[in-house]
Design a protein around this nucleic acid. Sequence first.
RNA 1: GGGCGCAUAGCUCAGUUGGUUAGAGCGCUUCUCUUACACAGAAGAGGUCAGGGGUUCGAGUCCCUUUGCGCCCACCA
Length: 910
Amino acid sequence: MTEYQLPKAYDFKSTEPRVYEMWEKGGYFRPSNDPLKPGFDPSVRPFVISIPPPNITGELHVGHVLFVSLEDLMVRYHRMKGIPSLWVPGTDHAGISTQIKVEKMLEAEGTSREQVGREEFLKRTWAWKEKYGGIISTQIRRIGASCDWERERFTLDDGLSRAVREAFVHLYEKGLIYRGPRLINWSPALKTAVSDLEVEYSEEQATLYYFKYMLKGSDEFIPVATIRPETILGDTAVAIHPEDERYQKFIGKTAIVPMLGREIPIIADDYVSREFGTGALKITPGHDPNDYEIAQRHKLPILSMLDANVKVTEVGGPYAGLDRYECREKLWADMKAAALVIKEEPYLTTIPRSERGHEIIEPMISTQWFVKIQPLAEAAIQAVRDGRIRIIPERFEKVYYNWLENIKDWCISRQLWWGHRIPVWYCDDCGRQTCARTDPLLCAHCGGKNIHQDPDVLDTWFSSGLWPFSTLGWPEGTPDLKYFYPTTIMETGYDILFFWVARMIMMGLEFTGDIPFRVVYLHGLIRGDEGRKMSKSYGTAIDPLTIMDELGTDALRFTLLVGSTPGNDQTTPGYKKIEANRNFVNKIWNVGRFVVSAIGSVTTDDGRRMTGDRRRTTDEWTLADSWIWARLQQLVRDVERLFQTYQYGEAGRQIYDFFWSDFADWYVEAAKLQLQKEETKTQTASTLVRVLDISLRLLHPFIPFVTEELWSHLRNAVGQNSILSSLGAEWPEALIIAPWPEPRPEEGWEAEKVTTFQQMQEIVRAIRNLRAEKNVKPDRRIPATFVLAREGNQALHDVLAGDRKVIASLAGLDDAKITLVDSLPSKPEGHVTLVVGSVEIHLPLSGLVDAEAEKARLGKELAETEAQIARLEKLLASDFANKAPAPVVQKERERLAMFRETMEKLKSQL
RNA sequence: GGGCGCAUAGCUCAGUUGGUUAGAGCGCUUCUCUUACACAGAAGAGGUCAGGGGUUCGAGUCCCUUUGCGCCCACCA
């Protein structure tokens, strides 16, 4: 029989790519029940996730690693459960950020997008996409993502473009898309409109400017305050509160716009606050959302005093052509000279800034395309309200409702070139619009040939909103769409609940008539040290690629998964933390090495038969076997419960604790001794194999690489061993498709054996503790006398009377010199005495025993025990005894009895 | 202005139907290269679970409140 050998340290560097290739080539990422393959069974319900498509411009950051790990965990878990599982991968064309990249590239070449023209620009952008657009996908593979790459999609590929076109035309024909001049958020840097969601508000120090609005033909004036004096040029009214006695007399009169001399009315509106500023408000409907609404109410004219380049238009008269801030300065200076200025004061206010370029957003009137969103929003609210869609954690439902209930029409047109072009053509002859599924050659209304397409493209989120079904073939009724839709879980960060999740729900319901997914799982964000959003500029970002190079993918995955609680943020893990999990990975590897060598040591059949179920009958199990098996069964149940409630982090921690603290620290140590004895050898090796096998299965969704690699070694080693090979008889060829562990509570252990092992652990700990305290050299084997009444302690008594090799080895005792007696007439001289529950342990530590110190130590222990007894007596005498559930009370009673026994023993030693 | 989250050991954090001596990793102290692992093993120190009040036989856990930090939403110039 060949001895199976494993390298001393786990080499993740060579393993990871090899294992990933094995998975992918093996076809394991494809759903086990596939409508495109023979033998398809439509009645089996699949598990489906569509990946939140990363931007093609994206560079891998920890956020990616977190979401990919979470989704991979979910998919691997369901796959192992035997459920046909599909994870659809893909990327997003990322209109704005891709366009910026290519523009920068052109700029470096000394040209610009305007110079090369639209067609050439798009050609260049596609070329850029071909070259760099796949990088993020490659990086995602590296994390171990078990996506079905044969179904990979791109938001701008043909199929998805068709979906976008269909969606637009559908809404257009239904009257839910309209075009018109509205006040929108203008991004001066990008020179495009952006949606409300793409505007961020930041609190900043600004100046509040007070000035005089002179009344026509009078020396009287109304004092007005503004933060943006340049917008005076676009004023079309001055508003005051209708009941403000200070200004009442001015209502209906005319005011004169400073420096321009334009005449505007003085109006009354409830919106104006009497307390704030001067109590009078200048109205600039062309550049302020509130003013715009007031203007609507009062039918005021709307002036655009800034153009697309945020330069003053002809409305600004002498200021035309100036930049908005140059104008502010110059106008204010001129007003000062004209004695129209009252004062300036510092003022803290919220400034709208672009989410992307961070420049100040300019509200402007512009002709754009909008989606009339309210009808869609109502359906989306209903879907969550009636439970068809569940949001995890639940508290985000409130946030979701709140947003949808107050939603405003969605501006979907962008003045960019990279994206889905708006499928509307304007006729130069009749002036009407043609919106069509296929590019028209003639005007649908007059048949004229002089038509031209709208130059704008759609908001990237418009195509993302279709993602769960467009990736499955919609609008075609493909087999994929029929089988895999609706998808199961939408896993993403809560920061895009509005941007993306809500829109997918709205669009899914509208276009497919069904929900796009059943569950929304929102993970927390990874933040920098001070709780801020993570960003490289704060210097808190770790580079996942470097980390994976240095510590391995599994270590990083495990760290992030274990640190993740639904909806709660986590701080960027430090190097140390990932290192600790690298150590865990190494631990697993080394336990694997031990188990593999243990298998190799089973070379002769001990003559005992396995049961029909290929397992030893349980009466041959040692205490340790029963104990570890019981712990493992508990773990399997707990992990299942935690997975069902999406508590993946807690599940990971529990497996970690079991594997390290129970399996490695105790069972493996006990196994070393058990393997030396013929009677227990085969049984021990078999337990090692079974516990490792199940542990690896439980760990696989968290750390797929080591587990897969180690499992294949385990499988080989078991397979090559004629005595143990039946253990692996039903194992598949790879861990990735090995069945998920089911609890088997009925087999292999009795509660008594488990508690007895735990008593043994306590004894071992007590002795180790004493050795450390007394500075007993680790290699010094010491004799021991155990005193334990047989009556009432049969199980423990049997252990101490039987084979003592395990306990001797673990506690550093001399197993040839261990004696067990039912009672001892008197305390032996020169011994140190320990009392553990009902066991008395006497250790002859000549030369180390100081009678006085011993007395003090025992006295202290007695005092502690008595304190516990007092506490429990008080507790059991209280209402607790008759109000708490019986098992809880019983537990405390037993504890009290144990302490009393210990107290007696201690007293007799003093 | 509304809504939400967080506050537990020196540091980073677990602790989800309330069960009675609160856990981990890192760091720290002492010992050990014991034939899976020094990326390790053994032992140990370290917490009035932010403050206050309440419900309960019992509260880190549920309710109210105060304070501090953070996030989201919102049209006060």
